[in-house]
Amino acid sequence: MFFGGRNGSKQGTEQDKVVSMGRFRNRVSLTPLRQAEAYWTALRRGDDVPSRSQVDPRGLENILSQTFIVERIAPGIVRFRLAGQKVNEMAGMEVRGMPLSAFFTPEARKQLSAAMESMFETPAIVEMGLQTETTRTRGAREAHMLLLPLRSDLGDISRALGVFVSEGNPTGVSQRFAISSIDMRSVSADPIQDMEFKAKARTEVTDRPEKAPAKADTNVVNPGFAETQTRFKAEPSIMEEARNLLKRRKAEADKVSTETAQEEEPEQPRAARGTHLRLVVSKD
Rank of each mutant, 00 (worst) to 15 (best):
T67R: 07
R44A: 10
E117Y: 11
T122P: 00
M119S: 10
F104V: 03
P99G: 09
G92W: 13
F104G: 03
S51N: 09
P32D: 06
Y39R: 13
P99W: 07
V70Y: 09
S118P: 00
P123T: 10
T122A: 04
P123L: 03
E127P: 00
E121I: 14
R27S: 08
Q54F: 09
A36T: 08
E127W: 09
M98R: 13
A42S: 14
I63K: 08
S53I: 06
L100A: 07
L112T: 11
V70M: 08
M90S: 13
G92A: 09
V55D: 00
G84L: 00
G97F: 04
R34M: 02
R72C: 04
S118N: 13
N62T: 10
R79L: 06
T31G: 04
V49T: 15
V70A: 08
M119D: 04
F68S: 09
M116P: 00
E89N: 15
F120N: 06
S113G: 13
R27C: 02
K110A: 04
R58M: 06
G92Y: 11
A42T: 07
E94D: 15
M90G: 12
T67D: 01
T67M: 07
V49F: 03
V78H: 12
T105A: 01
I77H: 15
S65P: 00
G76F: 04
N62D: 06
G97K: 13
S51G: 15
Q111C: 02
V49N: 08
P32E: 06
S113V: 02
I125V: 15
E121R: 15
G59V: 03
E71W: 11
V78M: 07
V87Y: 06
G92S: 12
L64R: 14
M90C: 10
T31S: 09
S53D: 10
K86S: 15
V95E: 01
L43F: 08
Q111T: 14
A124M: 01
V28Q: 08
Q111Y: 11
M98I: 04
M116I: 15
G76D: 04
I69Y: 05
K110N: 11
T105L: 00
E121W: 09
I63Q: 05
S101H: 12
M93T: 14
V28F: 05
I63F: 01
E37I: 08
P106V: 06
L43E: 02
A124S: 15
V70T: 10
E37D: 13
S53A: 13
V126I: 10
S51R: 12
L100I: 05
I69K: 13
L64S: 08
T67I: 06
